[in-house]
Design a protein around this nucleic acid. Structure first.
Lengths: 232, 232
DNA sequence: GCGAATCCTTATAGAATCCTTACACCCCCG
DNA sequence: CGGGGGTGTAAGGATTCTATAAGGATTCGC
């Protein structure tokens, strides 16, 4: 598989290293976009819509993990992190911040290209689904782009965590989300076994949204499995 | 919390190594499925529908790259390859055969867990685009991705065990599943002789799904062998 | 700093689920 | 005609899971 038009954003401050990367990518027929700073990287990611991002963590002007998180808000393109630091902690932090792969220097060009192919494979598979930005049922309306929630025509105030939880459910209407999924997406990977907390927040959401919180029609329980946001 | 969440298939012949992996996964509240050979791996990948596959390339009975390709035809679950061989050629071969990540021994457990989280993230993103895997016959419809079951247009509530049992049958429509197979896949390897329990649950499923539970057309009995999910 | 909002934990009652036991049934064969 | 293996239904106690309230810890805004 060759580049077939795919655009790769290379974020790397070291000029020599950058030249190596760019040459390898051009040889494989990728379109290359370059950035030498975190600020530039964000601009290019937002403006040029790359298909893959190669990100060197060791930029002088930005913390790598923060930048990863930032880029993730700007684009859904896979991020392959390149770093001189090979400690486990660094890897985990970057991966949990939204990176899709982590390569430690020094690495081979051939391997890098193979990992780029994997990333593109993923991106294409994920592209097929696009999300709705709104949900409405049972007198409840959720506007994800405006971050607003209404119940029976009245706007309801939700705390950040409540909203996050509801937003996850809205993105998967009608389908059961397991405790694990909800906990991981709302609270993060290290909270996957704190199911009690999830129950508390689900109760708060019901209290604010359901007509009769004791007999939920919108936020239903699937005992032993998880919760579901029901349409009509 | 019961183990109805993300399931990880661990393919590893070395017992010591396997124990390390299984312990780490269980601690993070994953459901673990184990396989020690290539043949077993294929069977479990097809039968248990894991969410991620951890594959050691160094199995005695199968070539790792071939097995990767084989597994890719059986499931779309992400494959994380674990290998003692760290040569670039090996990595590229595995990645291009369909693997999603490649870890070289020795590696840290924390990093492995982080990479599993990445893989699950991808799987979920890809899931959104795919059509719902479903089964329909005799007025019964089973939606495996939404975890919903309908009979005669009405949604039926199934308990976790009932659903698990039905899900196994749905993945092998028309084929007889032996008592042993069903017990192992639903209740686990230590329950393979508790056939009475299976009868009870099969009865409950019939009661909820069949038009006339006494004359089952969907869930038929193969005396002395097992049960079968019949199409039209 | 201070108050208010939010978060997370704990405790407990109530609900759902699981698994076992008990027993009736059916069909085949001696 | 009477077992006997295999099967289907019913019921209940033990276990697990869930809902809700309440309070201390923490964070946030001013």
């Amino acid at each position: 598989m060759t580049g077939t038009d795919a655009a790769v954003l290379v974020v790397e401050d070291d000029v020599a290293m950058r030249r190596v990367l760019v040459t390898a990518l051009r040889t494989s027929a990728y379109t290359v976009i370059e950035a030498g700073t975190g600020r530039e990287a964000a601009a290019q990611a937002a403006g040029r819509n790359p298909d893959v991002i190669l990100l060197d963590l060791g930029l002088p002007d930005a913390d790598g993990v923060d930048l990863t998180r930032k880029l993730r808000t700007l684009t859904r393109a896979p991020i392959i992190v390149i770093s001189a630091r090979g400690r486990e902690h660094d890897k985990v932090a970057a991966l949990d911040a939204g990176a899709d792969d982590y390569l430690t220097k020094p690495f081979g060009t051939v391997e890098l290209l193979a990992r780029i192919r994997v990333a593109l494979r993923h991106a294409r598979a994920a592209d097929r689904g696009s999300e709705d930005a709104a949900f409405a049922a049972h007198g409840v309306r959720v506007d994800l782009t405006a971050r607003r929630v209404f119940a029976n025509g009245r706007e309801v105030h939700l705390t950040p965590t409540e909203y996050k939880l509801l937003a996850v459910l809205v993105r998967h209407p009608g389908r059961v989300m397991t405790h694990r999924q909800l906990l991981e997406l709302v609270w993060g990977p290290s909270y996957v076994s704190q199911t009690q907390n999830l129950r508390v927040y689900m109760g708060q959401l019901r209290h604010k949204l359901e007509h009769d919180p004791a007999r939920p029609r919108l936020l239903t329980t699937e005992p032993g499995v998880g919760y579901r946001l029901d349409g009509e």
